Amino acid sequence: MVKKADNQIVDTEIARLLLKQRKNKGWTVAELALYSGVSQAMISKVERGTSSPSATILSRLAGALGITLSKLFAEVEQSQNHHILLSRKYLQQFWTDHQFGITRWSISPAGADPEMIKIEIPPQGKLSIPAQAYEHLNGQTLWVLSGQLDLQIDTQAFHLDTGDCIGLTAPADCHLHNPDEKMPCIYIATFSQKKT
């Protein structure tokens, strides 16, 4: 009985989000039917929440509206949990600096506080971050997941091994270096934005 109730809630949210997407495009039900290949009658039932759409129908509707099913379901989850923000692994964005070989992943969901990122520095890789980059933060904490990390914070030097954690409470020029010749260093950084 609980599963049926949960499905009805999800169907209602899907109906609301599909209707919202269609209206955002300025399309009529007939236009969505034309672009998706789903009948007007079925679209009307889905948008009213009186029919639970199959994965095929949902895929066609989402595709025609220019959104992915994963984005649609992420919006459903967010709308059901206003106080919970979720970041699925397969949706997390990453960026690689090809000059230095450093990769940065955005781990935390948008709007989370504190924010969390994962950074990988290749063997013998280096990264310098000026103090100005931290001026809008309340500080940050670095936790080494694997490998080693040498830090120079202003004039102080630190060596971190796997599992070590360091917190920076004020802006400072930071120079990070992976001293290992074979293994990358992977660490997590968490930080909060200053309230304006």
Rank of each mutant, 00 (worst) to 15 (best):
E31Q: 10
E75Q: 12
S36V: 00
V76A: 06
Q93R: 13
G147N: 00
S87M: 00
R104V: 15
A62F: 04
S52N: 10
A112E: 08
G101F: 00
Q193C: 14
E31M: 06
P130A: 06
L168M: 09
N24P: 09
H98R: 09
K3V: 12
T56E: 13
K194H: 08
G49S: 00
P114Q: 11
G63D: 03
L58C: 03
A41R: 03
V76M: 05
E77M: 15
M183N: 10
S79Q: 12
L160K: 04
Q99T: 12
T155W: 13
Q80D: 11
G163V: 03
L69W: 00
L58Y: 04
S51D: 05
K118F: 07
S192M: 02
A189M: 09
Q140E: 13
Q92E: 05
N81Y: 09
L34N: 15
A64G: 04
I57Y: 09
Q99P: 01
F73Q: 04
M183E: 10
S70M: 07
S52E: 12
A131D: 13
F73V: 10
G167V: 02
K126P: 03
E77Q: 15
L168N: 00
F100V: 15
I67E: 11
K3R: 11
E47I: 04
G167W: 06
F100P: 07
Q193S: 15
G26C: 05
S146F: 03
A170T: 09
P130G: 01
R60P: 11
G147V: 02
E181I: 04
S128Q: 14
I186V: 13
